[in-house]
Amino acid sequence: MIRLNVFIQVSESNRAALLKAAKELVASSLKDGGCIAYDIFESSTRPDILMICETWADEESLAAHEKAVHFVTLVPKIQTLGTMKIEKFTF
């Protein structure tokens, strides 16, 4: 399995728009084949930090997700609204 932790730093002025796009990404991604878990979390101590946590069955599932329309549409939008840092773990 593969786990991605995507940390996003966002300004207060972009927070609502970024959350809207991220929630749309989550809803669509949960329907992708091989998706085990996909959610967005808000930091309880830092309002400028969000995290998308995703778990995939295998590399093939993750690769297909990265080519999906919702991914190629919404991720660039999220990147214009905040700064992303990705951690990837295989287990």
Rank of each mutant, 00 (worst) to 15 (best):
D32F: 02
A68D: 06
L81H: 01
S43V: 06
D39Y: 02
E66H: 03
S61F: 09
L18T: 06
M84L: 15
G34A: 03
K31V: 11
L30R: 15
H70R: 00
F91A: 11
A57N: 11
S43I: 06
D48Y: 08
N5K: 13
G34V: 06
G34P: 02
Q79N: 07
F71A: 01
I40N: 02
E60A: 14
Q79L: 05
E66T: 07
D32C: 07
K23D: 10
A68Q: 06
E66M: 12
S43F: 09
K77T: 10
A37V: 05
I52H: 00
M84P: 01
K88T: 11
C53Q: 07
V75G: 00
R3A: 08
E66L: 09
K77Y: 03
L18Q: 04
G34D: 05
C53A: 07
T55G: 03
K67S: 10
L25V: 10
H70Y: 00
L25H: 08
V26R: 08
G34F: 01
S13Q: 15
Y38H: 08
T55I: 13
M84C: 08
M51V: 09
D39G: 03
I52Y: 00
L4H: 13
K20G: 08
E54W: 01
S29W: 00
A17T: 10
E24N: 11
E54I: 04
D58E: 14
P76H: 02
E24M: 09
E59Q: 15
C35K: 02
K31H: 13
E24G: 04
E54H: 04
M84K: 04
C53Y: 06
T73Y: 00
D32W: 01
I8H: 07
T80H: 01
L81M: 11
T55R: 11
D48R: 06
I52V: 12
T90D: 14
E66G: 04
A21P: 07
A57S: 12
F41R: 11
D48L: 08
P47V: 06
K67D: 05
V26Y: 07
R46V: 04
E54A: 06
M51L: 11
T45Q: 11
E54V: 07
D58H: 13
I8F: 09
A22G: 13
K67R: 15
G82L: 03
A68W: 00
S11D: 15
G34L: 02
I40K: 03
E87H: 05
L25F: 07
T45V: 09
K20P: 02
W56Y: 10
L25Y: 05
K23V: 05
I86P: 03
K77E: 11
V72A: 00
S28T: 08
K85D: 13
F7L: 15
V75E: 00
T55D: 12
L25P: 02
A63C: 05
I40W: 01
L25W: 05
L62D: 04
F91N: 09
S29Y: 01
E42T: 13
K85T: 14
P47I: 04
V75A: 01
Y38F: 13
R15H: 15
I40L: 09
V10P: 06
A21S: 15
H65Y: 08
A16L: 11
A16M: 10
F71D: 00
K77A: 01
K67Y: 03
G33Q: 14
S13K: 15
I52L: 09
V26H: 05
K77V: 06
K85C: 06
R3H: 10
G34K: 02
T90Q: 14
N5G: 13
I36S: 07
F41G: 04
V10K: 05
G33L: 10
T83I: 15
W56S: 04
